[in-house]
Design a binder for these strands. Structure first.
Ligand code: MN
Ligand code: MN
Ligand code: ZN
Ligand code: ZN
Lengths: 133, 133
DNA sequence: TTACTAAAGGATAAAAATTATTATTAAGAT
DNA sequence: ATCTTAATAATAATTTTTATCCTTTAGTAA
């Protein structure tokens, strides 16, 4: 059936229709902001509370089911956690896309240079997408 | 004298004591959040309005005198614009540090792969700093 | 220097974003 | 079917950011 059920239970979160609805919309959209998400979720759950949405987003981020993507000069978007990846954003159309890119050598260089032990990274490249060029 | 005077005039912003104070504190601190900045600025300008602070930060970001650094799981910090660089943040002590690192080959690879034309990037590596290890 | 003008500052209200509270509902367990 | 606890909805409160409006001041030019 739905994989979210498993993921939720895995993290000791009860499986509610609201949570499944939220996750399904985030999945479908790829990346979505809180406001966009609220509008979308309300199409399925007209009475859902904004507080419920915030609480769930926060929970899910805490248990690593969701990830916040911070956008330069823009509002954060949320996505379902998957393999580590970077992002590209188009300055014209504001489209946000995934980018699979190995940062291994960069991270290794950084670690050697600084003495830090890194276990996470966030890279957003900004520019103009092919369609907008 | 002070280099900020030149930078402000360059961007058609009037040179006020408040602005010089704000810039001087940001410079000294390296990276600073709005709240921290407000506390610090009020030591020099006890009556400065929070609105003035926000307005100035926004202006200065717009004219590229300041840059906002968005931190994963944390509040944004601001810094004086300088050469392009990346950042490292320690998950234990929350210290934020600059990291000079060439992303040229990564950006080039990304561009080839995606067709985007990139002119900006934001990379934050998260981990444990040497002192906290 | 003085006077003028537009921009900037300060006080405050308003708006937007997020979190807290509390009574009701419902998921998961027995 | 019942029970217990967590989740939801409604709402208030808090926090963050922006707008308004009046006063002050920086920059300019007599
Ligand atoms: Mn993504
Ligand atoms: Mn920096
Ligand atoms: Zn585009
Ligand atoms: Zn540390």
């Amino acid at each position: 059936m739905n994989d979210y059920i498993h993921k939720l239970k895995e993290h000791n979160l009860k499986v509610t229709p609201q949570r499944l609805g939220i996750l399904s919309i985030i999945q479908k959209s790829g990346h979505i902001s809180i406001e966009e998400l609220y509008v979308a979720v309300r199409r399925d759950f007209s009475t859902i509370s904004l507080a419920t949405l915030y609480k769930n987003i926060n929970f899910m981020v805490e248990v690593n089911l969701l990830k916040e993507v911070k956008i330069p000069n823009g509002k954060s978007k949320y996505e379902i956690v998957k393999e580590e990846h970077s992002h590209m954003i188009c300055k014209k159309c504001s489209k946000l896309e995934d980018l699979e890119l190995s940062l291994q050598s960069v991270v290794q260089t950084a670690s050697k240079k600084s003495g830090y032990l890194f276990d996470d990274n966030a890279l957003v490249l900004s520019g103009i997408c092919p369609q907008c060029q």
